[in-house]
Write a protein that binds this DNA or RNA. Structure first.
Lengths: 402, 402
DNA sequence: CCCTTTTGTTCGAGGGTCGAATAATATTGC
DNA sequence: GCAATATTATTCGACCCTCGAACAAAAGGG
């Protein structure tokens, strides 16, 4: 149940019913393809006559194509309908501290091209770089229909101003990516926080989320982000600042966090935290025979060391896993979501950390929780695919009524 | 943006547009009354002709009544329309550990009758008691249209089974109130958690929430409950277990909580916690001259003592306020809601505890928050009024489309 | 008394879905 | 081979809804 917002509502016209049913049919074609008109009528509840009219419109607008004849045990053979992947192309951009990925995807979220550029330290330089590269990218891939550009950013996005407010890992503040990109490409640009992008990716392309209304996507990298979905909708808050559970204090006298406070969850459970644990443990021994400092390992090194049964690396990961559990227990208690999906390099050591997380969550939950805690499929590129979903939504999401 | 849930969606028929616009008009009449048809057309964006048809229907069904003529500087005088409060009566029931309140409200949420019964310790006895009293209550107030019965419960409600799962303060588990009440009254019965009821009360009758999509209602009594509203909708989670932030652990070695765990937020910041703080502080001195134990004070006593500047009571309240701040900081960081409304006896000492809460939240938030933290109007009976909203929603909320 | 302004109603046009009827195809049984 | 049956897809009139123009009703001003 949603109250009608009398400060901004949408009245219905005679076309409203068509808009609603059209989107339902389009979604059914997307997820159930190949599918015949008769089947669409059956599983939508609309009349066959109505389905015919709607599909006629969708075919005319090239969202849907007629394919081969299907097989029926008796009677006239059905004509299969497919989603027309060629109808539109979407550009997805995933900005990360070291490297930024630009990819081209079709309507089904399949990537047909991909390239990477270095992420410049200075935001102005980066925006200029990116604009150039995207323009070249479009020239290189002359598709007729570009639907838009989705951008995933490792920081908070203000949806009112459509600007990046703060990205601690990049050291950027108040950056406008949207306007320059829109000016150079003439395309619609939508920006989104990385954790939210992961949630959108799961929502639109995930295997675990059909019919799911409440889940959380937890991104664990240099920091920790939470993409929260309740009632089937992303929680962004009035300014887009919702989802910063990574900066909830779990200990007032804890280690210093990038945000300036002490003892944030992400200061205990991020990749950075694990690297610090390892560095502290090897502090005395981290000099080689020539008494030179060995460089601090990366988180990837740590995973490799742990796989090789390096006891201090294992210990660092275990500690990280413990604190992941501490924070996840908070989310489980507070939201009781159906699923929490963990995204990040750390999932490569899931066999070790998964049980630790689950044990800690169980210990700290007031009652046995129904929440499944699962690692994301890392090969699915959730951040990047989420940017595709960001644009896809415009055509496939429920229309805004009332 | 909401993805269409293909496991349970709603197709649009020709009547869908009417349903949407009808609800918009009805809500406009509710909030802007008295209002003329011409004004309705202006502030809805619908044609005057359409408004005429819709209001004709609403008048016929007695949701709306025509009232006096209005005044216009020029031209034909407008005819005012009002919401017909007499159209329906709603029974609200607020179950609390000691006492249960039964009230009768009109469509505007005004209470026209009210009575109280003791809450029996045993749930079976209570359900029988309540059914009898509600039946008598209805006989005593012979209204033609009873729309339904809303019930607020101090515990978690499973919406799938429509049962009370667990109420720690009552010691009840797995209680079915809905079926017996529906059988004895023949009316629609809806049950809801107390914190969620407070959120609904704010949403539908509040002064702070028009146009607000993200806020949290925090109930502080024997325990702590959070009624969370995001994207303009109550967050209940798949089973209704969402909103248990009161049982988030803030210290593993903390005091024992009613849920069985140690160190839950509510074990630090509830009324019970404050009473415990006071009891501990006066442990050595809590015997009178005859060396007899003075009974442990109630939270009301504590508020009275603090008002009289009793240093130990003030200290206990301050400590409670500090920990309220700790938990609220978590909510502010994670949700960044526009408003957090605090409900409970503790708001009577708002001048003292308000500043403490705000200071702690400020200290623990990664960036200056935009969240307003305000005390609820205690005379508004938020729990009770929320139960009215629960039934009201059926007619005034946005219809479910797609 | 007529003109202007505003409110509220009437009515045909246009868009949408429904449901029955019809056309188009396959398969099965005889 | 042919009729009966089953299934798919389209066509068409009935009905519902909103729109927008025209019209009736009602007040005030010069």
């Amino acid at each position: 149940m949603r109250k009608i917002d009398l400060t901004s509502f949408q009245i219905a016209t005679s076309e409203t019913a068509r808009d609603i049913n059209r989107r339902i049919v389009l979604d059914l074609v997307r997820t159930r393809q190949p599918i015949s008109r008769a089947d669409l009528a059956r599983c939508s509840g609309l009349q066959r006559s109505t389905i015919s009219l709607i599909t006629e419109q969708l075919i005319e607008e090239q969202w849907v194509t007629e394919g081969a004849m299907g097989h029926a045990p008796r009677g006239r053979k059905p004509r299969f309908l497919h989603l027309n992947d060629e109808r539109a192309r979407i550009i997805g951009i995933n900005v990360r501290p070291a490297v930024t990925t630009i990819a081209l995807a079709d309507l089904s979220g399949r990537f047909v091209a991909q390239e990477s550029i270095g992420t410049a330290a200075d935001s102005k330089t980066f925006v200029a770089d990116l604009s150039d590269r995207v323009r070249d990218f479009i020239r290189l891939h002359p598709q007729v229909f570009y639907e838009g550009i989705g951008v995933s950013l490792p920081g908070r996005v203000d949806y009112a101003s459509q600007r990046l407010v703060f990205a601690p890992n990049l050291g950027w503040r108040d950056v406008d990516l949207k306007t320059p990109l829109e000016l150079t490409t003439g395309l619609l640009v939508e920006i989104e926080n990385a954790a939210n992008a992961c949630a959108l990716s799961e929502m639109w392309f995930g295997r675990h989320t059909e019919g799911l209304h409440d889940f959380i996507s937890l991104t664990v990298s240099e920091g920790i982000g939470t993409g929260i979905v309740t009632n089937g909708q992303l929680v962004r808050g009035p300014t887009g600042m919702a989802g910063e559970f990574g900066h909830v204090l779990i200990n007032e006298e804890g280690p210093l966090c990038r945000c300036g406070n002490r003892g944030c969850w992400e200061a205990y459970a991020s990749n950075t935290a694990a690297v610090n644990y390892y560095a502290q443990a090897t502090n005395g021994t981290r000099k080689n025979s020539a008494n030179r400092d060995i460089p601090v390992p990366t988180f990837d090194d740590l995973l490799r060391l742990a796989a090789q049964r390096d006891s201090k690396a294992v210990e660092a990961l275990d500690r990280m896993a413990h604190y992941l559990g501490v924070g996840i227990a908070m989310l489980v208690t507070g939201f009781a979501p159906s699923v929490i999906i963990i995204v990040g390099e750390v999932t490569r050591a899931w066999e070790r950390i998964g049980p630790i997380i689950k044990r800690v969550v169980e210990e700290r939950s007031p009652m046995p929780s129904m929440t499944r805690i699962i690692p994301a499929d890392d090969t699915a590129h959730p951040r990047l695919r989420g940017t595709i979903a960001l644009i896809l939504q415009k055509h496939f999401a429920a229309p805004t009524t009332a």
